[in-house]
Design a protein around this nucleic acid. Structure first.
Lengths: 67, 67
DNA sequence: TCAAAAAGTAAAGCTTCCTTTACATTTCGC
DNA sequence: GCGAAATGTAAAGGAAGCTTTACTTTTTGA
């Protein structure tokens, strides 16, 4: 799973700290999500998508991963 | 957060065991999700939504919860 | 109505998400 | 080219998601 968080942030000139604040997590969480260290929880994914005015599926990309 | 898993399952006459199998988790996980014991991970939410041919937002309801 | 299938409970244990703290490095405007 | 802002790394610890095992209760249908 990948996501467009960094890309969306840059397009809209929002810092990691700003986003973190808006969706109520720490900056480290945003960094880790952007750098693929782990996946967002469903609730956090929802808050992030909502912040950007998009759906979860538009922000988080599930390219048919097999585990 | 709530979800329509049980409802969708019943409409389509699918057992918890069947769904669990299809999305590759245990039956306990499905029971816990249906009964609101915890929230699905983003990946599991995606697999469940896909199984039903719906989007995550159509299966999982985020009624503007505040924490 | 009785057996089988489906749904539920409980609890211990592992993994993943997220926080906190403390620094190091990179980018950017002046 | 300097300082500040932004981004990054690391690591320990807590919370939430999920598994496994072993039962119990409810629902269903012939």
């Amino acid at each position: 799973m990948t996501n467009k968080i960094a890309q969306l942030r840059k397009e809209r000139r929002i810092s990691q700290a700003e986003l973190a604040d808006a969706v109520d997590v720490t900056r480290q969480t945003i960094i880790s999500l952007e750098n693929g260290r782990y996946n967002a929880s469903l609730l956090l994914a929802h808050r992030i998508a909502k912040y950007f005015g998009l759906t979860i599926e538009e922000v988080f990309l599930f390219e048919e991963e097999e585990e």
